[in-house]
């Protein structure tokens, strides 16, 4: 058993400044995850060389891989820091912020474009209101069981970070032009399958076909491998492709 954990962390003071690396050595304890290592640095911000530094900043909340906040690159892989167990990682453990999203500071990135894309895709059920209107539609268990996995998408961004079609966001314009990514497909698939959600099915697919939509997907399948919730993203992409053809709004690009 090692008595120390070695880390390399890519740091950046603010969006305008250059990134740099720092090394840390943390006393080993069993059952640590990357978050507890970062907490350790927070308490005693000293580099491996013994120099005082600032605590590393990162986002997190639930600590049980359900809020999606703590995504980062860990040993080069896009994943959540809370569910990354030190005992399963080779050392030195390398931590970097996601590369495709604008860096805010250290391991924090700005993923607000993902939420904005959910607006574009009208990712909601158009209910009349929250006043009492009786029961919801009946659904056979099979439909529920197929939809449930899509409803677990926590907007973590892993599927975008690994997608070859998803370009790094450097400017405000990039946010609008960019491919929406697998996450949005999963959500469109979810809402289009719902009896009430179907009302907007056509419009959602049309949105996907706009610049930054369905046409852009190169089908490398990286997204599905990276998704921590094992959401069948490529199934959604295939289904929506077929749906687009059926609706006759899918024309010249058949990949």
């Amino acid at each position: 058993m090692p008595d120390a954990i070695k880390l390399r962390i890519k740091r950046q003071k603010d969006p305008g400044s250059r990134s740099y690396w720092e090394r840390f050595t943390i006393p080993y304890r069993p059952n640590m995850n990357v978050i507890s290592v970062l907490l350790e640095i927070q308490e005693r911000p000293v580099t491996a060389e013994g120099n005082k530094t600032t605590p590393v900043t990162w986002d997190c909340n639930c600590l049980e891989e359900v809020c999606g906040a703590c995504s980062m690159l860990i040993n080069g892989r896009a994943r959540q820091a809370c569910s990354a167990l030190v005992d399963q990682l080779s050392q030195p453990i390398t931590l970097e912020p996601f590369s495709k999203f604008p860096c805010i500071r250290d391991l924090q990135v700005d993923r607000s474009s993902m939420f904005r894309n959910l607006i574009r895709a009208q990712a909601w059920i158009p209910i009349d209101g929250t006043y009492p209107l009786g029961e919801g539609p009946r659904l056979v268990p099979k439909v529920q069981e197929e939809s449930y996995p899509y409803s677990r998408c926590m907007t973590c961004g892993c599927c975008l970070e690994v997608c070859p079609q998803f370009m790094p966001i450097r400017t405000e314009e990039d946010k609008k032009r960019n491919f929406v990514g697998a996450q949005v497909y999963g959500q469109v698939r979810l809402f289009n399958a719902h009896p009430t959600g179907q009302a907007l099915a056509h419009e959602r697919i049309e949105t996907l076909l706009e610049e930054g939509g369905l046409a852009e997907c190169g089908n490398a399948q990286n997204c599905v491998k990276a998704c921590p919730k094992e959401i069948p993203l490529t199934d959604a992409i295939a289904e929506l492709n077929r749906e687009a053809v059926k609706q006759g709004i899918f024309g010249w690009f058949h990949k």
């Binding site: 059920i125 009492p132 209107l133 919801g136 539609p137 449930y148 409803s151 809402f191 009430t196």
Partner: peptide, 20 residues
């Protein structure tokens, strides 16, 4: 009524064989 509302909003609640 709150459960019904969430059902209408599309929450993927588990179902019985009859779809309830």
């Amino acid at each position: 009524g709150i459960i019904d509302l969430f059902d209408r909003m599309g929450v993927t609640f588990n179902r019985t064989p009859e779809g309830l």
